[in-house]
Amino acid sequence: MEEGGLGMGEIETELPPNVSVTSASAIQEFIKNSPLQKILNWGRKNSLWFMTHPMGCCGIEQICVGVAHYDTDRFGIIPRCSPRQADVMMISGYVSKKYLPALQRVWDQMLEPRWILMMGECAISGGPWWESYSTVTHLDEIFPVDIYIPGCPPRPEALLQGFIELQKKIVAEQDRTVIPNPADGGV
């Protein structure tokens, strides 16, 4: 690796000849600019495990998507019950001011890379509660949202299309996920 030795010079002072030292962030930077990243993205887009986290009436459609009738397994989309195993969080209902800290905590528990789908009018704008005293509007300023799926509620087919659009964004590297930087204490 031509960028070897970045950031580690102050620790390793004397190296044997023909040996170079690299760092995790240098490796990551190398992968980002190589075809290897495309393979990684291909793997990520085909394993979009979503968290079963119904938050309102849209949750019924969300559960429907996970069952055998729509067979989302053919796209690699599998429901998971734990945020630690999931890649995708769906905000599928209005978020009250009381609930927002809990939602942020669930989001913080998910491992990167991770994505957010906004499902239904309530999540996108507040829906019928958009001017209420207890509803959080503008959730997209709090979470990095990739896909908006309008509807009240959206059909399971619409949700599936949202996932496919997310897969297209991942392949095109247009998604808003944040790959953790190892220099910040990540992987």
Binding site: E131, S132, Y133, S134, T135, T137, H138
Partner: peptide, 13 residues
Amino acid sequence: PLRKDYAGYPDLT
């Protein structure tokens, strides 16, 4: 919030 003189409704932010 449900008093008639509550100033926070409608919340248009």
